[in-house]
Amino acid sequence: MSRRARLWVLAVGGLGLAVLLFAASLELPGFGGDWHPYGVRAVEAALARHTSNVVAAVNFDQRAFDTLGEESILFCAALGTVVLLRQTSDEHRVRPEPARVAPPVRRYALVALPVTLLIGLYIVAHGQLSPGGGFQGGVVVATALHLLYIAVDYRALERIRPIGLYAMADAAGEAAYLLLGAAGLIAGTAYLANVLPYGTFNTLASGGTVPLLNAAVGVEVASGVVVLLASFLDQAVEIVDADDPDSSGRNSDQDNSGRPRAPDNSDQPPAPDTSGRTPTPHNPPEEKPT
């Protein structure tokens, strides 16, 4: 097909879609109207189960099965990334050079890390009360850990990131969700039914299974994102092609332009814990980062 014909097909298709969307929009209820049949019922059900955040009640109680699917998407994405970005036989690892990060930035990261971690846990724990929940809080927790790469050094991140442990936590979070659903079957009702006592409205221990499911999702998302980013970081920082003769010398974590940095270009001294090390042109592949 020629380019012209393809453009015509695209134009006809786009025009048809536009017409259909416009026709469909005519049937929609008015924007911001006061008739919300689903909203009213969802709010009623949420209040009956003592869950003050109605969105959490919909996600983790009324439509908890949908959330199981959504959670599995991230699980499968992390799994697929780990498989696709694994270290192949024609690649080898080199130790990244220590990063030169300005001391104020490093200090800020070390202060911000626990604060961000705490905020992430707060978002997870208050999922049934205020906006947020397992997914949002889990992502914040994972981002907090990666402040170590962003503002300190990759090896500092690797020290607190045993990948096997996080992969296991990822699977455990996913399994916990499935098992919590099975609790409903054991109690004699439906899968993922809210079988726990509902608790006092607007307190942390309210909503029955909602906080537990939130915690399971939080663990799954936080460790899933860590595993996901670990594959990306390994590929971007550590893994190089084995057949490339000079790649190991260049594999600077800090400067990927391939030029050596002039010593007076850096206004910061190297990190105190790494000042003794100088980048060697050829690292043996088995030399693991400390």
Binding site: T116, P131, L147, D255
Partner: peptide, 25 residues
């Protein structure tokens, strides 16, 4: 409770800028 949005952005926004500062050095 919408204040939580600002709380999250207050910590993640600078983190995003530091990502750029680090990887686009």
């Amino acid at each position: 409770s919408y204040v939580d949005l600002a709380l999250v952005l207050a910590v993640l926004g600078p983190a995003g800028t530091l990502v750029y500062a680090r990887l686009l050095a």
